[in-house]
Design a protein around this nucleic acid. Structure first.
Lengths: 339, 339
DNA sequence: ACCGGCGTTTAAACCGGTTTGAATGATTGC
DNA sequence: GCAATCATTCAAACCGGTTTAAACGCCGGT
């Protein structure tokens, strides 16, 4: 196994200095076209590619961005958001040859994870997802001098650029859809309240009820999990007057809720209407097909990556608002039962 | 914003040379304990952490491993395997402060992605997942001199160390379970045949039928997707004599299949038994709860990471076999209907 | 013949660590 | 008392790039 070629080898073969090779590589002006050709063909012949660590050292840029997934391990696999979001990031950064460093951590170690990411300088910037109401990370990245964009935290006073995709229109639309179908008792099985997006969905549900002139609905925590959704559904169905419709924080808890309701002998949607959130691939294949809200996490990842890259390169970037989530009506919602 | 401290700053503050600081950092023997203390407290005071790029440059080790996800974008979010697998990797590499570089690519660009990963030397080794029957990657990583472990390709002549988790016992168990329940016509809705693991599951199904003295069952492609599972199920149900049980390649297609069957008026499990694979979080909350096969992708990730780290550090590592997948019996399987 | 200016190229310093071989001072052996 | 040994420390080279300031060759103008 022969040592892999360095810039010096290329320079020698092309009969120029290392500086010239570097200039050509970064297509800087002021190199004769003939020289450029010689350098390029020498590089090609040797199969030379610059070492990223050497480059990182001299430029001070790691050419990588970081994503921290701070979820309970058992939740990690259940969320369709992250894979799609990462795919969106990738489309942007791979264009410039940048990399994505992934760190997973338990929520309680999150801060240390960011600290290490910053200390090592393995990344030039990070995404802040799953922002919580009282989140320590904005202050942390500011302290560390680490460029960061907040993903989905528009109303924040974080001082960070943020990329937003509004969940609320879809949820409001869902509630209106149910109201139009005659529902008057519409419950919500929410995600963990510390998450900004869970809270926003809850707020949208609550606002929409008020807009429709309805009293406050029943609210139960579902934790974005199947188990939580199932438990909340059981509790709702045990009430003296169960709701006729339930809006869930995500598809996972909605699907589990549907199963619980059917298990209790209810027919969907005749006896109970159900709405989810996410539009997971399975949603059109549940029985009945799940009415749900669809966002576009790929475009979200793409926009977030663009914002972060710009922030890293220029020092500033504008907030961005993506197309809001929309309602997808399928078979799990229907006219309210007559009591 | 003050420049972040370097090893030189620490050395000056501690009153020693940079070499000494480096020795202390890497706890090499031959430094007086008193000096060690001084260096450590100086580092602490300045909040110094070594720059990973500088380190990478001089040691020639990137201290990161790479994972390439070459899936169709629409499939990326549907597989519970990857997040869990990555979580397992993370538990191992984070101990030593290593990082995980994630690259997503379309299957057709996969080779280029590995090439770039190797050329940049951003990673010290890679995981090869989703191995296909005639896979170009083992030869590629050998050519590139890139350490790699094959994830789940035991029978291969790849020459690569591999970490395996046998799917087959669970599938065989599933078929036996169905046979015990009186089923004689057990179909299989398989994953893409180019994947080694999809093929293995199919083979196990087929072998188990033979072992039970049954004729060959009906085989249909389900592509590991909801849509594919639904379509295959429709086709199976349209047959003159539909199977009384279906073993699916994964939970996603199984769940979609259940919905299709119920939609066609079948009661589960009275009219049709269904078995999935993966044991996704939703599996115990479908209606009826899904009988399925459970592997442990977290431990798989952990073992793969250990193997890769050892391979990187020592140049060799032993193949490893993990505990095979097992059958989890729930409500979607029951006695065969009497015809 | 000399000078200024331009386009092109380069030597050398630098990024922040690691590593080697030698220097230093203290201890031991004879 | 002096050389040999040992533990400790350090100066300097090195990793493979980028960048700056200076040098070079060549041209036209006077």
């Amino acid at each position: 196994m022969t040592r892999r070629p360095t810039i010096g080898d290329v320079a020698k073969l092309a009969g120029v200095s290392r500086a010239t090779v570097s200039f050509v590589l970064n297509n800087r002006p002021g190199v004769a076209v003939d020289t450029q050709r010689r350098v390029r063909s020498a590089a090609e012949e040797l199969g030379w590619t610059p070492s990223s660590s050497a480059r990182a050292l001299s430029t001070g840029r790691a050419r990588a961005v970081g994503l921290v997934l701070a979820r309970e391990p058992e939740l990690i696999g259940t969320d369709p958001f992250f894979p799609a979001f990462m795919a969106g990031i990738e489309t942007v950064i791979s264009e410039t040859g940048d990399g994505l460093m992934l760190q997973m951590s338990r929520p309680e170690n999150e801060v240390d994870t960011y600290r290490r990411l910053a200390a090592d300088r393995r990344v030039d910037g990070v995404f802040l997802t799953d922002l919580r109401a009282d989140d320590a990370r904005p202050a942390l990245v500011a302290e560390l001098g680490l460029p960061a964009v907040a993903v989905g935290a528009p109303d924040s006073g974080t001082g960070l650029p943020s990329v937003n995709l509004d969940d609320r229109p879809a949820v409001r639309e869902a509630v209106r859809h149910l109201v139009d179908l005659g529902h008057r008792d519409i419950a919500h099985v929410a995600g963990p309240d510390e998450f900004v997006h869970a809270r926003r969905r809850r707020q949208a549900w609550s606002d929409a009820l008020a807009e429709a002139g309805l009293p406050e609905g029943t609210l139960l925590p579902g934790g974005f999990t199947a188990e939580g959704g199932a438990r909340a559904t059981r509790m709702l169905l045990e009430r003296p007057t169960p709701p006729t419709a339930i809006v869930y924080g995500n598809d996972l808890s909605a699907t589990a809720g549907m199963a619980v309701a059917q298990d209790a002998g209810l027919r969907l949607p005749q006896d109970l209407s159900v709405v989810g959130f996410d539009d997971v691939p399975l949603a059109s294949y549940t029985n009945p097909p799940l009415t749900t809200c669809r966002a576009n996490p790929v475009s979200w990842g793409r926009a977030s990556a663009q914002a972060l890259v710009q922030l890293i390169e220029t020092g500033t970037t504008a907030d961005m608002d993506l197309e809001p989530a929309t309602l997808v009506v399928r078979g799990s919602t229907g006219p309210a039962p007559v009591r």
